[in-house]
């Protein structure tokens, strides 16, 4: 039951960043702070030293321990914001689990979970929302959105999200 699955070794992959904004997203390649690593079950991990500015698209489950500013789209997959993760972005995912910080609007087609110690400042649209005691949340919750309806527009200045450069100008670290 507790036997570790050693069949999957961490692989050396290129850092999932490198922006045109000049802000580096250094990765040491170690298992703890690696920019991107594959682990068992096709979950990709973005390490805590990684900073990504721009759009993040993916077609597999993703755990973010670093910082992301801009937009994250994982529409058919689970996105986990780890305890060290700091997100200043609009998030679209099938399911979102927050243990770190999210500042931005969230659209999840299945569920949003804010766990103890997690923090969300923004509006949530999802049919299921679970907020643990000890979690921080400020914003609105809409559990009634019909499918096909456009997602909520991002909050204006109140959200304090940084100016996001136009999509054409930003790096798009594709995680596939």
């Amino acid at each position: 039951m507790w036997k570790r699955d050693e069949s999957v070794k961490p692989t050396n992959v290129q850092p999932a960043s490198g922006g045109s904004d000049g802000r580096s997203s250094g990765t040491s390649g170690s298992a703890q702070s690696g920019g991107r690593q594959l682990t068992g079950g096709d979950v990709v991990n973005i390490g805590k030293s990684v900073v990504i500015k721009g759009e993040l698209n993916g077609s597999e489950d993703l755990t973010i321990e670093g910082q992301v500013e801009g937009k994250i789209e994982l529409k058919d997959h689970v996105l986990t914001i780890g305890a060290n993760g700091k997100i200043e972005a609009q998030v679209f995912a099938k399911m979102l689990i927050v243990l770190g910080e999210v500042n931005g609007n969230i659209v999840a087609s299945e569920k949003v979970e804010i766990r103890d110690g997690g923090s969300v400042d923004g509006d949530i649209v999802s049919p299921r929302v679970a907020i643990a005691e000890g979690a921080h949340f400020r914003g609105s919750v809409d559990m009634q959105r019909k499918s096909g309806q456009p997602p909520v527009a991002p909050r204006p200045a109140a959200q304090a999200s940084p100016q996001t450069p136009p999509a054409a100008q930003v790096a798009r670290p594709a995680i596939r």
């Binding site: 804010i114 049919p127 929302v129 679970a130 643990a132 919750v141 809409d142």
Partner: peptide, 9 residues
């Protein structure tokens, strides 16, 4: 959390 589920759901 349970109030969110109650009022929202």
């Amino acid at each position: 959390g349970s109030n969110v589920t109650f009022f929202g759901g």
